[in-house]
Simulated assay, not measured.
Amino acid sequence: MKKMLALLFAISTVSVCAQTKKIDKIIKKDHSVIEATVSKISDKSIEYVFSGETLVNSLDVSQIVRIEFANGRKQNFNSAPAEAPSPKPIAESVSKSASPEVQILKPNTIAVLPAPFVNSENLSSSEEMAKFAQSDIYNKLVAKLTNIFPLVVQDVRTTNSLLRKAGIDYKNIDETPIEDLQRILGVDNILAAKVSYSLKTMQTSTGFGSTNAKVEDHKIKGTDFSSANSTTSSLYDYNVYFDFYKNTSKIYTETRSPVFKTKDAWMDSISYLLKRCPIYKK
C-alpha cells in the first residue's frame, strides 16, 4: 500500500512540474506574444517550436522587440517598435521623385512664378519665354519697391532653384496647390501669371506707275512702267492672366487683352495689372 501511494505521489509531482515548466516568450512589435521554444537566432531571423510540436517556425528579427527566455535571460533587438508614418507636408501633386523641403517662412515676401507662355492654337509652350516673362514681372516689381513697401521680392534664381528641387517647372506649376508652393518657396505672397496668344499674318501691297505717250505719223509712241511692293506683318492676339495670392488666399485676379497687336504688347498688360493689384500704392 505504501509503495502504491509513493508511486502516485511521484506521478503527480512529474505532472505538476510539466504543467509549470516555463518556455520562451517572443514579444513582437505589434505587442503580441509568442510562447514557444526558441531553437536558433541569426542576424535576420529566429526559429522556434511550439510546445508539443516538431514543426520549426521562422520569424524575421525586424518584427521582434525582445525575447524572454525560460531561464530568465532577456535579449533585446535594436529595431524600435513600429510607429505610424508622419503625414507628408507637401501634397502628392508635387513630383513623387522629388523630396521638397519646407522653407522657413519669410514674411512680406513675394515670389514671382515662371509665367507659362502658351500658343492657344497648338498649345505649345516655351521655357525661355516663361522665364523671360517671369523676369519681366520681377524687374517691374523691383523697380517699384517703394510702391509695394513693406513687401520685398524674392530673387528669381532662388525661386527657380527651390522649384527645381521640388520637381516643379513651367509645365506643371499650374497643377501645384498654392499652399504647397508657399511652403516650398518660404513666402507668404505669390504672383502667378500666364500668357496665351495666337499669331496671325497680314499681307499688304502698294504700287505705282507712269505712262508717257505722243502721236507721231498717226502712231502712238511712248513709255509705260509700273512698280508694286508687298509687305507681311505679324499680329499677336494676347490674353494675360494675372493672379495674386496672400497667405494662400487669392486677393486679386484679372485677365487683360492689350489693344495693340505688336509682339511685346503683353508687357503693357502686365504693367497695367501690376499697378492695379492691391499691393501697389501710389
Results as ranks from 00 to 15, higher is better:
Met1Pro: 04
Lys2Trp: 08
Leu5Ile: 13
Ala6Thr: 07
Ala6His: 06
Ile11Cys: 14
Ile11Lys: 03
Ser12Glu: 04
Gln19Thr: 02
Lys21Thr: 11
Lys22His: 02
Ile26Thr: 07
Asp30Thr: 07
Ser32Cys: 00
Ile34Leu: 13
Ile34Cys: 05
Val38Tyr: 13
Lys40Trp: 03
Ser42Ala: 12
Lys44Gly: 01
Lys44Ile: 10
Ile46Trp: 02
Glu47Ser: 14
Phe50Leu: 13
Phe50His: 14
Phe50Glu: 08
Ser51Leu: 12
Gly52Asn: 07
Val56Tyr: 01
Asp60Cys: 03
Gln63Tyr: 13
Gln63Glu: 14
Ile64Val: 15
Ile67Val: 14
Asn78Arg: 04
Asn78Ala: 12
Ser79Leu: 12
Glu83Ile: 14
Pro85His: 06
Pro85Cys: 04
Pro89Gly: 01
Ala91Arg: 13
Ser95His: 13
Ser95Leu: 14
Ile104Thr: 15
Ile104Tyr: 00
Leu105Trp: 01
Lys106Tyr: 01
Asn108Asp: 11
Thr109Tyr: 01
Leu113Lys: 05
Phe117Asp: 10
Val118Gly: 05
Asn119Ser: 07
Asn119Thr: 05
Asn119His: 08
Ser120Leu: 14
Met129Asn: 13
Phe132Tyr: 11
Leu145Gln: 07
Thr146Val: 06
Thr146Gly: 10
Phe149Trp: 03
Pro150Arg: 02
Gln154Glu: 14
Val156His: 06
Arg157His: 07
Ser161Gly: 03
Leu162Trp: 05
Leu163Ile: 09
Arg164Tyr: 11
Ala166Ile: 02
Ile168Ser: 01
Ile168Leu: 08
Tyr170Met: 07
Lys171Val: 09
Asp174Ala: 14
Asp180Ser: 12
Asp180Lys: 04
Gln182Thr: 05
Arg183Trp: 03
Leu185Lys: 05
Val187Thr: 11
Asn189Val: 07
Leu191Trp: 03
Val195Arg: 12
Tyr197Asn: 09
Ser198Gln: 12
Ser198Phe: 02
Leu199Gln: 11
Ser205Ala: 13
Thr206Asn: 10
Thr206Phe: 06
Gly209Tyr: 09
Lys214Val: 08
Lys214Asp: 10
Glu216Met: 08
Glu216His: 03
Asp217Ile: 00
Lys219Tyr: 06
Ile220Gly: 01
Asp224Thr: 15
Asp224Cys: 07
Phe225Asn: 13
Phe225Asp: 14
Tyr236Gln: 03
Asp237Val: 11
Asp237Phe: 12
Tyr241Cys: 00
Asp243Gly: 00
Tyr245His: 09
Tyr245Ala: 12
Tyr252Ile: 12
Phe260Pro: 00
Lys261Thr: 15
Lys263Met: 06
Asp264Tyr: 09
Ala265Gln: 11
Ala265Gly: 09
Ser269Gly: 10
Ile270Asp: 02
Tyr272Arg: 06
Leu273Met: 15
Leu273Cys: 11
Arg276Gly: 13
Cys277Ser: 15
Pro278Val: 13
Pro278Gln: 06
Ile279Lys: 03
Tyr280Gly: 08
